[in-house]
Design a binder for these strands. Structure first.
Length: 264
DNA sequence: CTCAGTGTTCAGTG
DNA sequence: TCACTGAACACTGA
């Protein structure tokens, strides 16, 4: 579930449901992989009896602002999720962290594949791995002029460069494909060979996709009907709504879905 | 049974 | 030193 729009939805939900409330109970799974750089026990101790002041996000990383540092930082990997619910029976499978918050609200981080990470941080701007992130594509998307020189240094397919979190924090596989589709640029094109009109289109499409996706609170059904998103994994049909053929190939280590007829 | 997957990191190479 | 590629990580569901 986790690219920028999904993480932003969670951030807003935390602000709305949990801000101002105190964590009364914490349960942790004995998972030395998902808990990174901290034991589950210590992690629990730092959260218990703390008040949640709000939630911050940069790229795909989310942290809870507590009344005392350190703060918990969540990364969702491929399958991580945060559930907010009231009935304990709704606790999801693969739970790694369970919070009981004042007012009977429960928050559970779950992750089947265990590529997500739970950390403690003191400062999102200074502590790795957050400090390695580039500008957030929702809050701080660079202008086309700023993007020019950064892309000019990269001799890799634009698809791979879009996934580089040091350049475009928050972009993931589906957003990269969507942005390239909407800006009519082939994912194979080398970043350094894009012209100004193309960079302009790319930047514009990226701003549009991230804004619209966040505007719907990442509810996929509400993404505009013309988006590639709705058909990119549909292997049966393998066509866009307009009947253009969708191709799948590995670029930059990930599967790209794209429309050669339209993307050059 | 096999394979791909809305992600990141690290070793190896140029 | 910088940048790129591919493998590893771990596990589910098609």
């Amino acid at each position: 579930m986790p690219e920028l729009p999904e993480v932003e939805r969670v951030r807003r939900a935390v602000e709305r449901e949990l801000a101002g409330r105190t964590i009364t109970r914490v349960a942790v799974a004995e998972d030395r992989i998902v808990y990174a750089g901290v034991s589950p026990r210590t992690f629990a101790k730092r959260l218990r009896d703390r008040r949640i002041m709000g939630a911050g996000r940069r790229g795909k990383y989310l942290w809870l602002v507590l009344d005392r540092k350190p703060w918990p930082c969540l990364h969702f990997g491929m399958t991580g999720r945060l559930f907010l619910y009231r009935d304990a029976r709704e606790r999801p499978r693969f739970h790694k962290l369970d919070l009981l918050v004042e007012g009977g609200i429960r928050a559970t981080f779950s992750d089947a594949r265990r590529l997500g990470r739970l950390r403690l941080i003191r400062d999102p701007d200074i502590d790795p791995p957050l400090s390695a992130l580039g500008p957030d594509v929702l809050d701080d998307l660079p202008s086309a002029v700023q993007l020019g020189p950064r892309l000019a240094r990269r001799r890799a397919p634009i698809k791979a460069v879009l996934l580089d979190q040091a350049l475009f924090a928050g972009v993931g596989n589906w957003m990269a494909d969507e942005v390239l589709y909407q800006s009519a640029i082939s994912p194979r094109r080398l970043a350094c060979e894009l012209g100004s009109p193309e960079i302009l289109r790319l930047r514009r499409a990226l701003a549009h996709v991230v804004r619209v996706a966040c505007g719907t609170d990442a509810i996929e059904d509400r993404y505009p009907a013309g988006w590639l998103f709705h058909v990119r994994w549909d292997r049966r049909r393998g066509r866009t709504r307009r009947g253009e053929r969708i191709v799948r190939e590995t670029i930059g280590g990930r599967t790209a879905a794209w429309v050669p007829e339209r993307q050059r």
